[in-house]
Simulated scan of single mutants.
Amino acid sequence: MRTLLFVLPGLAIMALAFWAYSENYETQQSLSHVRDLQAQIGTERETLAILKAEWAYLNRPARLRDLVDLNFQRLQLMPLMPHHFAGVDQIPYPQPVLPALDGTITLSGELDP
């Protein structure tokens, strides 16, 4: 009986040690995964900054104006002017369709006198 009292705590300590070791291993693996994700996020942010800079470079007004002049015969692009747009009073909005009124009133409930 006395041996059993010494063996059971020893087995419990070994089981807890195994559990703690496996939790530590999973934690280290999760931290490594987080570090990899943060490095990937940093790389993607650098790539995004480069792409934004390239987009701004390619959309310079002077460059676009030169491209329009170069391809005017094929594209026939004209600059936008205010008279190209319609005014609010020129937009044909549909008129609402109203039901015909015949003079009767429909109640949702019936009252008893």
Rank of each mutant, 00 (worst) to 15 (best):
S32M: 09
S22L: 08
G42A: 10
H33C: 01
H33Q: 12
A49C: 03
E26S: 12
S30C: 02
Q38D: 10
H33S: 10
E54Q: 12
Y21T: 14
T43F: 10
S32I: 02
H33I: 03
E23N: 09
A39H: 06
R45G: 01
Q29Y: 00
A20N: 06
T47E: 15
R45L: 14
L58R: 11
T43S: 15
L37I: 09
S30T: 13
N24I: 02
S22C: 05
L51C: 05
N24Y: 02
W55Y: 15
D36P: 00
S30E: 11
T47V: 07
L48H: 01
N59T: 13
A39N: 11
V34A: 02
Y25A: 14
S30G: 02
Q29V: 02
K52H: 08
Q28R: 09
Y25I: 02
Y25S: 10
W55F: 15
R60Q: 13
L48G: 01
A20H: 05
I50L: 15
E54A: 07
W55P: 00
E23P: 00
Q38R: 13
L31G: 00
Q28H: 01
R35A: 14
R35M: 06
L51K: 13
L58V: 10
E23L: 06
E46G: 14
A39R: 08
Q38H: 05
N24F: 02
Q40H: 04
H33F: 06
W55A: 15
Q29N: 06
H33N: 09
N59D: 02
D36K: 03
K52L: 15
E44F: 10
K52F: 03
Y21H: 14
L37M: 10
L37Q: 13
L58E: 10
Q40Y: 04
V34C: 00
R35Y: 06
K52D: 13
L48F: 05
Q28E: 09
L31V: 03
L48V: 07
A39T: 06
